[in-house]
Design a protein around this nucleic acid. Structure first.
Length: 888
RNA sequence: GGGCGGGUAGCUCAGUCGGGAGAGCACCGGCCUUACAAGCCGGGGGUCACAGGUUCAAGCCCUGUUCCGCCUACCA
């Protein structure tokens, strides 16, 4: 990058490509397995290999990158561990769809060939999201990229499975699980999304086997009645104390099923009689166990009716519902059909209605694992931020249920369990056993099910670092410093990592969990393809640049609040990036002929000392905010400093010195400060806007290497709020300038008009400061001159403004008309009176004077004195102006 | 059913320890002032959802009401 002069506007595209390649090439993202520096580590929430970058990823990874870059600047050994998740069901669906397009399906292909096809697909398309993360500027240690299906992680999965099995924490059994008939697999409770749907509550009469009448049951899923094996009533329900029979005839099926009595039944619901379908309802399943009822599976795994459904066999479950209802109606057994809202489970991958279904599945016994994970958060080993999420975490963990981990799909970690063909003995082992340990038979077949994808993600913080080997990497970086994630996977992932980490590493997986919000559209709606309100992060990056986009995300990432994103907002931050660019452009014009890295504190000029003080304070604010995950505050503080202090005031105030050919020494001093402040500002901003800061860094004389290797600037002392002398003086100068500009604006005085201003103050020290800083005021307020003096003669033709205890007289003779000035003063007085009456009300209140802390009372009194003095002065001026106006 | 979060300027949102209501955008007025018109200078704009309470003092603490959003749950 040869030219030292910057272009007029910042053009991100080329710059981003260039510097990202540079960083990667130079190994700036690489962590050391171990060195003397303090370690900082984050494991990325692995995106699905099938994924494309969406706003959620963009926010999530921007925040992680900000933290990683910040900690590198602070001199830490940073590991940001990247990788992707094999996303069992999702990936299988993608490849199956591809096959379907070619008129094939996985069954015709066979398991082995299908898995090969998935791997091929991954080779081809699986890294798309990685490249998209790179465009976001993500500084992951790509050399270490992992995949949940790669060899090392598969070994970790197998090791964990075998150990948990041997510890009795994994078991297999016939249970009711959530079944997706489309994906044809079991799902965990978490993978079911509940949606309130309008359905019907059907009331059906089951005639008594003997005698008159029958029991009336209520159901929302009448098709399941074909699998009923009992009817239940409450044992203390008087309505059913005396029944003519102890069994009923199941309509349509025409078999006799028992009436059982169980306290589970809610007497208040419906008729108080409950049909029991152990094969298709989790509660009924429990009831069936208690009462030793048979299970009759009438809905098959593909969602059609089984032979057990008799003449309904082969019918789709929803068509069957209609058919059953029609048949019942025909027989006069349908007694009612009321509209009824109920929660219906849907598959989180394909949105099909989930069917509770009886099948043999593998489970993790979670309670023993959950207890330490609860304790770790309770005692602060892991902090959840914001804290409100800890409650959600506890609620779930305390009520946790066993985790169904087997999936009837092909893409995933096949369960390392084998069944003996001879003696049916089940063997769980790391490697394929040669012989059955029970009978010595060699006819062993492996379990066909694979594990839930989240089973392998649960190991992510340590499996990626080489576990089960005890690697140096683990020693250096586990537990990780912080996990940055969205709340939508708090249970799916975070809770499970906590459990597995504690169980297998004996240590929490992360010190902090920072839970960020969701990115929504500008109306606060969740972005979704079906709504068509999706903003593609890559489009945003193309249009506005990565830095502007990242800054927007950071600026809106307030804790506990969703990010509402619109392109309009990104545009605003593009202006900010451009502002920085132009400030640098200006600075480089003054630095290209040499710079001086000497001690900036040697600079005596007020604006110089002021901006240095402000910089140190801003650095402290940004650091404090980042240390507490308040990204919006960090971004806000830096923005405010760059735009409204550095650009608006410092650069303007420094111009006379920088352009001043006649005072080389002052000029050098200013250059020195300009160089230091710009350099430190770039470093301060680098975590948020990595590209533009690197580009300017490169052009800035006196820097070498990458800005990524720079040191985070020195901060003001924490907690020291006392303004420096420079800050106090500059504050006075700034309010004088603002007051004069205000007069100009309100009175429509031409910008070119060179005004004469008198500043009067009773305070000699103040007068001294104003006199000393006169040149700055003249320059920034565009004046002819400033006269400083004690209160005394006032021009009757001057506009007045009060700043602190200074009275400012802006001579208007020949500049404007005085009716306007009178109007302006009246307006000003109106505002003042409002403020004063509020304050006087306080001071007239005896209990305030008695009970409020003396410091507060003194403050209010001081304020009152100040305002009323201002009021007096303005009134006097108004009188003068009015008089002058009358005279003509 | 249970839980959580939110309601502050036209819009999107900050607001720390209870002590004079802020920012960005939008709007109005004035400026091509030699880094930047993607800019500069100035300005207007609020019943802090509603009702009550605690307090000398409430956007902030407490109670209730209401509206919105989300999570969670085996009442068929």
């Amino acid at each position: 990058m040869s030219s030292k002069v910057l272009d007029k506007g910042y053009e991100p595209r080329q710059v981003e490509r260039h510097w990202y390649a540079f960083w990667e090439r130079e190994g700036h993202f690489a962590a050391a397995d171990s060195d003397g520096r303090p370690a900082f580590s984050i494991v990325i929430p692995p995106p699905n290999v099938t994924g494309v970058l969406h706003m959620g990823h963009a926010l999530n990874n921007t925040l992680q990158d900000i933290l990683c870059r910040y900690h590198r600047l602070k001199g830490h050994n940073v590991l940001w561990m990247p990788g992707t998740d094999h996303a069992g069901i999702a990936t299988q669906n993608v490849v199956e769809r591809q096959l379907a397009a070619e008129g094939r399906d996985r069954h015709s292909l066979g398991r082995e060939k299908f898995i090969e096809a998935v791997w091929q697909w991954r080779e081809k398309s699986g890294s798309a999201i990685i490249n998209q993360l790179k465009r976001l500027g993500a500084s992951c240690d790509w050399q270490r990229e992992r995949f949940t299906m790669d060899e090392g992680l598969s070994l970790a999965v197998r090791t964990v499975f075998v150990q948990l099995y041997e510890q009795g924490l994994i078991y297999r059994g016939l249970y009711i699980t959530n079944w997706c008939p489309r994906c044809r697999t079991a799902l965990s409770d978490l993978e079911v999304e509940h949606e309130e749907l309008d359905g019907h509550l059907y009331r059906i009469r089951y005639p008594f086997a003997r005698g008159e009448g029958g029991l009336v049951v209520a159901t929302t899923r009448p098709e399941t009645m074909l699998g009923d094996t009992a009817v239940a009533v409450h044992p203390e329900d008087e309505r059913y104390a005396d029944l003519p029979a102890d069994s009923v005839i199941l309509p349509l099926v025409e078999t006799e099923i028992p009436i059982i009595r169980d306290t589970y039944v809610d007497r208040a619901f419906g008729t108080g009689a409950l049909k029991v379908t152990p094969a298709h309802d989790p509660n009924d399943f429990e009831l069936g166990r208690r009462h030793d009822l048979p299970s009759n599976k009438v809905i098959a795994d593909d969602g059609t009716m089984t032979p057990a459904a008799g003449r309904f066999q082969g019918m789709d479950r929803f068509a069957c519902r209609e058919a059953v209802v029609a048949a019942l109606r025909e027989r006069g057994l349908l007694l009612g059909m009321e509209p009824h809202k109920h929660g219906v489970g849907h598959c989180y991958r394909c949105k099909s209605v989930v069917e509770p279904n009886l099948s043999r599945q593998w489970f993790v016994k979670v309670k023993p694992l959950a207890e330490p994970a609860i304790r770790a958060v309770e005692n602060g080993d892991t902090r959840i931020i914001p804290e409100s999420w800890a409650k959600t975490y506890f609620d779930w963990m305390y009520n946790i249920k066993d985790w169904c981990i087997s999936r009837q799909i092909w893409w995933g970690h096949q369960i390392p369990a084998w069944t003996c063909g001879a003696c049916a003995q089940l063997t769980v082992a790391m490697e394929t056993p040669a012989r059955c340990p029970a009978c010595g038979g060699s006819d062993l077949t492996q379990e066909t099910d694979v594990l839930d994808t989240w089973f392998s993600s649960a190991l992510w913080p340590f499996s990626t670092m080489g576990w089960p080997e005890q690697t140096l990497l683990l020693k250096t970086f586990y537990p990780t410093s912080v996990l940055v994630t969205g709340f939508d996977i708090l249970f799916f992932w975070v809770a499970r990592m906590m459990m597995m980490g504690l169980h297998f590493m004996g240590e929490v997986p992360f010190r902090d969990v920072y839970v960020h919000a969701l990115v929504r559209d500008e109306e606060g709606k969740k972005m979704s393809k079906s709504k068509g309100n999706v903003i593609d992060p890559l489009d945003v990056i193309d249009t506005y640049g990565t830095d502007a986009f990242r800054y927007t995300l950071a600026a809106f990432a307030a804790q506990g609040r969703d990010v509402r994103l619109s392109e309009k907002r990104v545009e605003g931050y593009r202006h900010f990036i451009n502002k920085l660019w132009n400030a640098a452009r200006f600075a480089l014009m003054h630095l290209e002929r040499g710079y001086d890295a000497g001690d900036p504190a040697a600079a005596p000029a007020l604006p110089d000392r002021w901006i240095l003080a402000r910089l140190r304070r801003t650095v402290a604010q940004v650091a404090e905010a980042l240390d507490t995950y308040k990204f919006n505050e960090a971004a806000g503080a830096a923005y405010q400093f760059v735009w409204h202090e550095f650009c608006d005031w410092y650069l303007e105030a420094a111009k006379p010195a920088l352009y001043g050919e006649d005072a080389p020494e002052a000029r050098e001093a200013s250059r020195r400060v300009l160089w230091h402040v710009l350099r430190d500002t770039l470093v301060l901003l680098h975590p948020f806007a990595p590209f533009v800061t690197e580009e300017i860094w490169d052009k800035l004389p006196g820097t070498s290497g990458s800005i990524m290797q720079a040191a985070f600037p020195a901060a003001a002392d924490a907690g020291d709020d006392t303004p420096t002398e420079a800050e106090t003086q500059m504050a006075l100068v700034m309010s004088l300038v603002t007051a004069i500009r205000n007069v100009r604006g309100e009175m429509n005085i031409a910008p070119a008009a060179q005004l004469h201003v008198t500043v009067q103050s009773a305070d000699e020290a103040v007068r001294a400061v104003v006199a000393q800083r006169r040149a700055i005021v003249i320059n920034l307020a565009r004046l002819a001159d400033v006269t400083v003096g004690a209160p005394g003669e006032r021009s009757a033709t001057a506009a007045t403004a009060i700043v602190g205890d200074c009275e400012l007289l802006v001579e208007l003779k020949g500049v404007i008309d005085f009716a306007q000035e009178a109007q302006r003063l009246e307006k000003e007085l109106g505002k003042l009176n409002k403020d004063l009456s509020a304050i006087n009300k306080k001071l007239n209140n005896d209990s305030f004077l008695e009970k409020a802390p003396p410091a507060v009372v003194a403050e209010v009194k001081e304020k009152q004195a100040l305002l009323s003095e201002k009021q007096d002065k303005l009134n006097a001026t108004l009188a003068r102006v009015t008089a002058f106006q009358r005279q003509g």
